[in-house]
Nucleic acid binder design. Structure first.
Length: 424
RNA sequence: GGAGAGGUGGCUGAGCGGCCGAAAGCGGCGGUCUUGAAAACCGUUGAGGGUUGAUCCCCUCCCAGGGUUCGAAUCCCUGCCUCUCCGCCA
């Protein structure tokens, strides 16, 4: 959510900023609501004040043993008037909250213009794509051997976009997760955390998935509403919801491995081959809660932490700065890391690292006590995949294949694989 | 799943339906004292919002949502959460 004070101070600035995302902000409608809100709020508070005063008088009169009937008569009719005003106020407040919750974050000044991923900017490129003297297979063909990667079985048990991994491939995915967690904990200073994989609506509203993107989620329960997490970002970031954090506890750096569940509504027919786009996948997520002035630097740092994993695995990748049209709803600035997939002959997203600034924090009421002002102020939140394990598995398979279709285990993983060096 | 107890400020913990945003203690902050620290003493110390140039002032918040009442932390209903006992379990 954006700062309501900014709306009042400079609605035109907001309209202009949001138009970069092709988001049409109706500043006239907003101003209308705001004017009415002000009016009704003042009226309501006046009535409340009046009621409080008179009620106190009744109390005092009663204590002195005076006749309170005349006073009661005066107040009687106020009740309805007040109730009406209160209802009107809460109605308009709900309307405004609804409007505000549907407005995306303002983009960082460094985010380039552009409508879609074609306008994203390549920041850097790392590693050499492997030079095969044979035709590179994709992970589907590579995984078919011994049914280590079984799409039919996944479909039978659950449906399309589900997969079963067997034997060495299942272990390889686990090894990747271990490597990631260990690296972020021991080398990058994150503390590991384990969280619920089902979350309530408040949590999803806090990080921005609700109310606008309910269709992307799997709802697991009605009353109370529970949803499968689309990313560990949701439970982990919500750890600081409604919390005033001690300045000495910042920055908070958390790493969490979790399964992620996405309905992929609106992705019908896209990436149907292989395990690029699944309803369920494993991911290691990095989350940072920082002082506002730190978030720019933290964003660079967090992205580098994700890059370290790719470097350890010697997987070629490039770092992209997303353009205005491709940057997510809650994010102010996002870097995507795209790994090279020889089987597809393309770079594909394997990590997305975002700075949300105070957008999530305002929804979450996640604050810290600024020692300089002594007041609670909003923190900044960031997160990024470090990395998506399923897609990393694919990348390892495709980049480390040989002419026979065997997978060679990257050096960094051999100890996690119990010494196995090749998946035959 | 069954039975009971309870949810109050950073924490502990009081609170006859009216003068309670809330006693007291602890903690925090500021000060006195001290070479410094501790102790002691004095003062101060919740959040959000409205209005204002800024104060003043006003409103809301004692788990959440409804209700009763002129007036609710206090009474009633519903929900959520926590604790204890029994059952069942990983």
């Amino acid at each position: 959510m954006l700062d309501p004070r900014l709306f009042r101070a400079d609605p035109d600035f907001i309209r202009k900023q949001l138009s970069r995302r092709s988001f049409d902000f109706n500043s006239r409608y907003y101003a209308e609501l705001e004017a009415r809100r002000k009016d009704i709020q003042v009226k309501t508070q006046d009535l409340q004040n009046e009621r409080n005063k008179r009620s106190k008088l009744i109390g005092q009169a009663k204590a002195k043993g005076e006749d309170i009937q005349p006073l009661l008569d005066q107040v009687q009719h106020m009740a309805n008037q007040l109730k009406e005003a209160e209802m009107e106020l809460s109605e308009i407040q709900a309307k405004m909250t609804g409007l505000m919750e549907g407005i995306p974050n303002i983009l960082d000044g460094s985010v380039p213009d552009g409508k879609n991923e074609e306008a994203n900017i390549e920041i850097s490129r790392w590693g050499e794509s492997p030079a095969f003297d044979f035709e590179a297979k994709d992970h589907v063909d590579l995984g078919a051997r011994n049914k280590r990667m079984d799409f039919e079985l996944g479909a039978k048990i659950a449906g399309a976009r589900f997969i079963v991994l067997n034997g060495a491939l299942a272990r390889l995915q686990r090894a990747l997760i271990q490597l990631m967690l260990d690296t972020h904990v021991s080398e990058h200073g994150y503390s590991e955390t384990y969280v619920p994989f089902l979350v309530n609506a408040d949590s999803l509203r806090g990080t921005g998935q609700l109310p606008k993107f309910e269709a992307d989620l799997f709802k697991a329960n009605e009353d109370p509403a529970l949803y499968l997490i689309p990313t560990a970002e949701v439970p982990v970031t919500n750890m600081v919801r409604d919390v005033i954090i001690d300045a000495k506890d910042l920055p908070l750096k958390l790493v969490c491995h979790s399964p992620c569940f996405r309905s992929e509504a609106g992705a019908y027919g896209r990436d149907m081959r292989g395990m690029i786009r699944q309803h369920q996948f494993e991911k290691v997520e990095l989350v940072q809660i920082v002082r506002p002035e730190e978030s720019g630097r933290a964003h660079e740092e967090l992205t580098e932490h994700a890059e370290v994993i790719l470097k350890k695995l010697k997987l070629p990748y490039r770092k992209m700065l997303l353009c205005a049209g491709d940057t997510g709803f809650s994010s102010s600035k996002t870097y995507d890391l795209e790994v090279w997939l020889p089987g597809q002959g393309a770079y594909r997203e394997i990590s997305s690292c975002s700075n949300f600034k105070d957008f999530q924090a305002r929804r979450l009421q996640a604050r810290w006590r600024n020692p300089e002002t002594g007041k609670p102020e909003l923190v900044h939140t960031l997160n990024g995949s470090g990395l998506a394990a399923g897609r990393t598995l694919i990348a390892v398979m495709e980049n480390y294949q040989d002419a026979q279709g065997q997978i060679h285990i990257p050096e960094a993983l051999i100890s996690y694989m119990g010494g196995i060096e090749v998946i035959e």
